[in-house]
Structure formats: C-alpha cells, structure tokens
C-alpha cells in the first residue's frame, strides 16, 4: 500500500522546515496534492534544457501589444 500523501508531507514539513500539520483541513489539502503530482507526471519531458525563469519577462516583451 502506498504511503498516504499527508504522511509524506508531514515528514517533509517537519524535517525540512520544522512545521507541524496545524489541523485536519491541512491534511485533506495535503492529500489533494496527488492531483498536482499527476499533473507534473503528465508534463514530464517538456522542460527544455535551456528553459529558465527569466524567460518569462522576455516572453512578455516578445509577445506584447505594439504601442500605437
């Protein structure tokens, strides 16, 4: 049986950040991260080697509306 996601998040949050699960809603929202994992799994292979965050500002300029 797979480890419930909330347990994985609990270990990560405690180990890396010293943060404890504050309430049951947090556990439910941690479990719901499974949809995010599935989303990322479906996108594997699409990140180009040269992609980087600053490409966004460049893209805003490259695709902008021409000024009148």
């Amino acid at each position: 049986m797979q480890t419930p996601l909330r347990e994985i998040v609990a270990v990560q949050a405690r180990t890396w950040s010293g943060i404890e699960q504050p309430n049951e809603a947090a556990g439910i929202m941690a479990d719901a991260m499974s949809a995010t994992i599935e989303g990322f799994a479906a996108l594997r292979g699409q990140l180009a080697f040269e992609d980087e965050p600053s490409s966004f500002e460049a893209a805003l300029q490259a695709t902008k509306e021409p000024q009148p």
Binding site: L5, V9, A13, S17, I19, M29, A30
Partner: peptide
Amino acid sequence: GRLYPSQG
C-alpha cells in the same frame, strides 16, 4: 490548511 502542504 492551504499554506501547510506547500512544504511538501
């Protein structure tokens, strides 16, 4: 509840 899972 929303902030917590971001740690994972």
